[in-house]
Amino acid sequence: MRALLSIDYTNDFVATDGILTTGEAGQKIENHLVDVTRDFISADEYVVFLIDGHDEKDTYHPENKLFPPHNLMGSNGRKLYGKLADVYEGNQDKSTVHWIDKRHYSAFSGTDLDIRLRERNIKELHLTGVCTDICVLHTAVDAYNLGYQIVVHEKAVASFDSEGHRWALRHFKNTLGAIIL
């Protein structure tokens, strides 16, 4: 069994005016990311939207020292970007489509993602979203350490750091044994 993890494809990370935007790099992957998501949903496979969510008043969160406030709960910046928002809205009532709020880079940190995947006997995780070298990378490392097979859709991941993006793709393949499609 397999699942699609759609990571942080939100306005703050993709829109031209997003707080931590990947800009054109993130916008270029939209069609491929949406197609992969639709394919998984059409096949009734498990699709999880793993979305960064921060509280502006939380002064203890370590990201506050590294990045400006982003993906704030209830903000427009936290909404899914572009066509992916329509895909989610049109399918959120399906039992195979799920949304998980996350607070850290890795979608496994502090969430029930691993439990949900194991309940469904999922062994293979397909990763899409942003940022390749931050949240996608940390999620992939945790997935590897938990024993999942990892598949990264190269045309459906992006970063604001092109060098970091290329490094992460090599790391997925050469260190985590991921399949790069």
Rank of each mutant, 00 (worst) to 15 (best):
K28C: 13
N64M: 05
V47A: 06
D112W: 05
S95N: 15
V152T: 04
I122R: 00
Y105G: 08
D55G: 14
L72T: 04
F13L: 02
K155F: 07
S75Y: 07
A25L: 08
N31G: 10
A158E: 02
N31K: 13
Q27G: 11
K79Y: 00
L169N: 00
V97M: 10
A25E: 09
G90L: 01
V97R: 10
L169Q: 03
H61N: 13
G74W: 01
T59M: 09
F160W: 10
R166W: 12
T21D: 04
D114Y: 03
K65F: 08
A85I: 06
L127Y: 02
G90C: 05
R78M: 03
G77W: 04
T175M: 08
I180L: 09
T16A: 14
H98C: 15
H104I: 12
R2D: 11
N31A: 10
L5D: 07
L181R: 09
D55E: 13
L113D: 01
Y148A: 02
V48D: 00
F40Q: 03
E163T: 15
T16C: 13
N11Q: 05
T10D: 04
D12S: 11
F40G: 03
Q149K: 13
L137W: 03
A107T: 07
D93H: 15
F40H: 06
G77T: 00
V136T: 06
H70D: 09
G77R: 00
G147N: 14
P68S: 15
R116I: 10
D58Q: 03
D39Q: 10
D55T: 15
L117A: 09
T10C: 04
G18A: 08
A85P: 01
G147S: 10
S109D: 14
T139M: 03
A25P: 13
E56L: 08
H32S: 12
G177M: 12
A43S: 14
V14M: 07
S109G: 14
S109N: 12
V87K: 03
I180D: 08
F13S: 07
I19T: 13
Y105M: 09
V152D: 01
P69D: 06
L125C: 03
D17A: 13
T21F: 03
E124S: 05
Y88C: 01
H171M: 11
K155G: 14
D52V: 01
V14H: 02
V152A: 11
A158P: 05
A107F: 00
N31H: 13
R78K: 10
S95M: 12
V136Y: 04
S159Y: 05
H54W: 01
E89R: 09
L181H: 15
T132K: 02
R116N: 13
Y60F: 15
F160Q: 11
G53E: 07
G110N: 04
Y81A: 08
Y105V: 07
A168L: 00
V136S: 06
D101N: 13
C131I: 06
V47C: 04
E24N: 14
